[in-house]
Write a protein that binds this DNA or RNA. Sequence first.
DNA 1: TTGTAAGCGTTATCAC
DNA 2: GTGATAACGCTTACAA
Lengths: 326, 326
Amino acid sequence: MPNIKDVAKKAGVGIATVSRVINDSGYVKKETREKIEKVIKEISYVPNEIARSMTRQRNDIVAFILPNSTHLFFGELLYFVEEELYKYGYKVMICNSSEKIEKEIVYLDMLKNNRVDAVILLTNNDIDQYLDKKLPLLSFDRRFDGVPFVASDNYEGGVLAAKRLIEQGCKKMMFIGDDAQGDSTPVMTEVTKRRLGFLDYIKEKGYPEMINIEYPLGDYIHIPENIHKIINEHPEIDGIFTISDAVACDVIKELENNGRRVPEDVKVIGFDGGRSFLNLGKKITSIGQSPKLIAEAIRRSIINFYKKEEIENQIIPVYFQEGETA
Amino acid sequence: MPNIKDVAKKAGVGIATVSRVINDSGYVKKETREKIEKVIKEISYVPNEIARSMTRQRNDIVAFILPNSTHLFFGELLYFVEEELYKYGYKVMICNSSEKIEKEIVYLDMLKNNRVDAVILLTNNDIDQYLDKKLPLLSFDRRFDGVPFVASDNYEGGVLAAKRLIEQGCKKMMFIGDDAQGDSTPVMTEVTKRRLGFLDYIKEKGYPEMINIEYPLGDYIHIPENIHKIINEHPEIDGIFTISDAVACDVIKELENNGRRVPEDVKVIGFDGGRSFLNLGKKITSIGQSPKLIAEAIRRSIINFYKKEEIENQIIPVYFQEGETA
DNA sequence: TTGTAAGCGTTATCAC
DNA sequence: GTGATAACGCTTACAA
């Protein structure tokens, strides 16, 4: 592959002048510029971005560490993050952790070697001690000391769900979510606030009998078998709020398999927006979070890393999504 | 950030020796190695991968150009591709094209600048003329002259669908798919073979009355309104094979909205495997393709680029996925 | 075993 | 306006 020297030689100029033309920086006489441009075309020269990164000491790559791209919400978030950053000249490296802390650690290391311009971190793992806080790190739905974050307004989401269930006449509520947001781990994510908002509002309105179910975090999609049992042991429950649409789906199937109608007997609200491109049944009533707004916020923070401005945490609004299960 | 010189100076050795330690190459006396390792820890030196790419003339980055990561099948494929390549030390750059050829072209250019080690291309666009065939390019479900490819056994998928519908007693068949695989574009993708396999088998078995519907490629999820009309104009049809599960879902809803029961009155088979993590209704009967097997094949081809071996095209088996709609 | 020095392909700083 | 030349941080002959 031809390099800048080849261009310079063939055009009979110095490499500095070629560089000026490529980057459109500094003064270059019109004829010189044209000659150089011609040569570039002729030998189909393409500037080597690696060498460029070398001198500029940055490479316009942002890495996104997330559990996977198969869960719809993650896939959407990834999509919009890429779209946003693309507009600003960044490329996105995808780092699936499969929820495994080991893989997150390896990636964090690797990314340090690669001198990526920023790392977006989406995880439920107890990874604080492995974070190099001097790096341009941004987290989503999670607080780490010294790391700026973007999060959905999870608390408000919980409140919205509670309001809806109460409006619909529910008396005995249940919350179902994984314990990555619970008291049993050192991890405290912003997602916990879905439960808190829900709980607070229900208490405030005088419905004290809430049943709170937490289970070990698995694949984000299925809930453990024993949780099904607990659900069935509580026929008095008439309103359920779940940590995600995936869990809501699982719960609704379990209820219906056991002869309880949704929403007639039990109302169920999920979280994420109730979207699915492949659903032949009823639409889940849900609290929606907007991957597009979140991606814009993430992009804003990342751009600010390079403006050396103070990076402010950002809370993104959620909304109530009408459906057929509550 | 400290560099290799800092390490060398502090350890009182030459930079070549440090390099040998880092890369575990060549002979280094045990004590020297230990001293160097100690210094590396002390000043928390991290080798600069950009500089490394510079001399090695490769960067272990593979780019994946695909329409999006929100369509479940794409999200899954992306996930497994990343997983496979990660095992072999590659990082994956995600390039969402949103099906737009302009964005594909920009990415193709950008990737040339970035000297990525390989580009995986998944597209339905007429982009042949923009491909630099000298680059390490690999395509999925699509043939380009001079570009190796990996594809699902789409033809066999069509045959499997036809067999099933015939077994289930269907007499009048219909195929519904976008025209990116049709005769109206210069593009001929491997996906066309879903239709061909279906058609051939049905003809072979003496069911000549197949209705073939093609529509302009949109978002991979919804079909145009006028197609709904066509479906309803054919009450005699009792077996439908669609280009994807997403289309099958759309079609089934349309049929049911118009009082035709699935699978009692009309049987419908989709393509992709009928997976969905959020489905409260019946499961779609489908022809499955395995993103994991495909990802492995892709990884194999990419590794071979660097073994300078002949890259063979690979056809990946599909399977019949039992469901409730056929 | 180890160190020196020549690349790798740019950008940026100076002179001219 | 333009051209040498010194970085940037590493790998790898080649010499010692």
